[in-house]
Design a protein around this nucleic acid. Structure first.
Lengths: 187, 187
DNA sequence: CAGGAATAGTCATATCATTGAGTATGGTTC
DNA sequence: GAACCATACTCAATGATATGACTATTCCTG
């Protein structure tokens, strides 16, 4: 029952189609939730049936028609109710950490390779988030923007995503260098 | 197919019963994977049937009997195969972030309360991880331990857990303070 | 004009995860 | 001695997620 709230939260920003949502929720740029398109289309159907969002058909001539969705007052109330109940911390589940946990008893080479690859990915995401942040705050300083803008939610979640990826990158680089130094391998 | 590898990775450290594993995988101290007891018992059954772990019955007189499990050579091979295939980054899914994403259109009071609560929880986990790290490295310095010990996997994952919670704490505190400053509320 | 990419979406299925309720034993505390 | 907690584990039902295969349209490129 949480994907639905993530969808509602994103639709607060404006009308989106399932396809557009799919891009927002994609791994490459989702800073607070991830979902595949199929999940989103299914969720949109449920949300519409529940009266929490309203869809309208848009006829297009240059590409397939689409349906754009907006949050209804009932949807906003649902979000408010969601925000009112205490949430549990999300659980950590990361394959790469499992590998590092076991690395003493395994060949470290593939683990090192993955750590280095992940560090690069994390660095790219940090840069992506930096671009998103700059775009969101326009020509204001961060401080001014956060004090005065009336739409800071996406900026704040983006900050969290940036912090996570920065941490991730530093850890991956440190661990990779360490494992390399301990067991000099060719790869 | 990832819980199974997490279980194998933990069982590398020694014999454990399902009940002991359940404690290790509990939210309060799991730094790289989380699972409820029922999942673990089910997974242990599957792993034993697949020959990846071996269990032995231990008769106890002061409390119920238990079964202790160890990784078999086949299990170690399975872990090695797992570490060899590239893993996907885990997806972010955090209720609290969904709330912050939507906070501009909601009453900020309950969100602020949850952020402050979460900051306290994160701070407690940082301290817990610090204690675990100290215990793991004994009287060695971190640098010496990481260079010379032959069991650094758990230490490294613990470092990642600490970094995550530290980041989390700082973000929660900052965002809570910011939202408080923007909309002075009673709560 | 064939092939591929982008847009826009659907269906089916299998596995995974969550939740709640149980069973059983022994020790401790009030 | 009743209640409660810790150990140790099981079963069942539901809900969420992941995976793969599909349909359809239009635009752009070679």
């Amino acid at each position: 029952m949480a994907l639905r709230h993530a969808v509602l939260a994103v639709l607060l920003d404006g009308e989106y189609s399932g396809y557009q949502l799919a891009k927002i929720f994609d791994v490459s740029c989702s800073n607070f939730w991830y979902a595949v398109p199929q999940q989103l289309y299914a969720e949109l159907t449920k949300l519409e049936r529940a009266g929490l969002i309203a869809g309208r058909q848009v006829i297009q001539h240059d590409r397939p028609n689409k349906r754009l969705f907006t949050v209804t007052p009932a949807g906003l109330a649902e979000l408010a109710a969601f925000a009112a109940v205490p949430s549990k911390p999300s659980s950590i589940r990361e394959d790469l950490l499992v590998m590092v946990q076991a690395v003493d008893r395994l060949d470290p080479a593939p683990v090192i390779a993955q750590l280095e690859e992940r560090a690069v990915i994390a660095a790219a995401k940090v840069e992506l988030f930096d671009r998103m942040l700059r775009q969101l705050r326009g020509d204001l300083t961060e401080e001014t923007f956060l004090r005065e803008s009336d739409r800071i939610g996406p900026y704040l979640t983006c900050l969290r995503g940036r912090g996570f990826e920065q941490e991730n990158r530093e850890w991956c680089e440190r661990v990779a260098a360490l494992l390399r130094a301990r067991a000099p391998v060719s790869s």
